[in-house]
Design a protein around this nucleic acid. Structure first.
Lengths: 199, 199
DNA sequence: GACATTTTGTACCGATTGGTATATAATTTG
DNA sequence: CAAATTATATACCAATCGGTACAAAATGTC
């Protein structure tokens, strides 16, 4: 039994979770390839030696960022669910995308989905991890839809799984369609159509 | 009036359109950033000097590839329309994606949509071009839906533009959802749901 | 054949990529 | 205080990035 609290040697001068969170945000904004290690060092506020000593490699760091993103997202969605209910939580996913677009002119999308596209066929480990992380989120979406159906807030006759998949798929498309440069009026229209899936 | 047929100097040893087409295919498969100039040289079968003399830069070449892709796509869709009709042409977009997935385990998606996502906020000229090229394709989709509606093949009460946007959006999502690693059974299910938009 | 023109082959460029080596600084343990 | 341990700072690495320089090769014109 060793004393797990005691560190020998020089103590870390930064908070590992803080640095990881900053990296996750940067990855989210710029994607994996477009993020260089030097970019990460700046935003994490650490030096290269600390980076590699703590996180081992860019890919290993990204892997942890994916996991952290899923954990944050799950936590946030559960909290939002408590406050606003199941159906409103699902609708919020579209609304917040449109809000982000209007406020910043930009739309980041979901880090997992973005990474799925980027890593597919190029970084197999990351690609498989994206699949695993997404399962957690998808399971929650199915639960939320099921709950909303039981409450009679959703009249769509399909199964919760079918509805969730179709809705999330449309949400994935929304990010792509926005970035393809489709004009704002059409995007507004489209976002309404997507939300109608949950009627 | 100068003689346009006569070239002075050493003649080109390669076909410009063939080389451009090969580049387009490679970009389609790998994306813009993940394609290096050296990759392009190999697949185009030319040397660096010829590359820069003919196409000026990687970005300029990509711009031409985007245009070529749109031209090819329009021509192919119009041909398919003649042979199989409007509704079937739209349905084929989903079917061919699933076929590609089953045959190759891969799915390239639409070069324009992929590029929209990749270039958004990073390569402004390319980003704007994606928007312009997509308008051509989208106009055709709206025409096809309108025709199918007139023939009574589509009963969806929304306008052709709304249907086209919603359907294409779902198709964009399908590529993302596939690459996110969602299991095959769910993807089959999803593709059916997407095609039902056109009922 | 001489000359102008254009393409091609090769060597090279500075910048950036992800990652290492190594020496020094800061801490706990004895 | 000395030794062991861990973290940090800096310099460095080969490989790759997109792009350029320049001389040689191939053609039409005169």
């Amino acid at each position: 039994m060793r004393d797990i609290k005691t560190h020998r040697g020089r103590p870390k001068a930064f908070d590992e979770i803080e640095a990881l969170t900053a990296a996750m945000q940067y990855f989210w904004e710029h994607g994996y390839d477009a993020t260089s290690v030097d970019d990460l060092l700046k935003v994490m506020g650490i030096k290269k030696s600390s980076f590699y000593a703590t996180f081992k490699s860019k890919e290993a760091l990204f892997s942890r960022a994916l996991q952290l993103y899923r954990e944050y997202s799950l936590a946030f969605l559960r909290e939002y669910h408590k406050e606003h209910g199941a159906k409103q939580t699902m609708l919020m996913l579209v609304d917040s995308t449109i809000e982000e677009l209007e406020k910043s002119g930009n739309v980041r999308g979901c880090l997992l989905m973005n990474s799925g596209k980027e890593c597919y066929g190029r970084y197999e480990n990351l690609s498989r991890q994206v699949g695993r992380e997404f399962t957690y989120l998808f399971a929650l979406f199915v639960e939320l839809i099921a709950e909303a159906k039981e409450k009679g807030e959703i009249h769509n006759p399909k199964t919760p799984q079918e509805i969730a998949l179709f809705y999330i798929n449309a949400l994935n498309g929304l990010v792509v369609t926005i970035r393809a440069g489709v004009e704002k009026a059409l995007i507004e229209e489209l976002s309404q159509e997507i939300k109608e899936i949950l009627e």
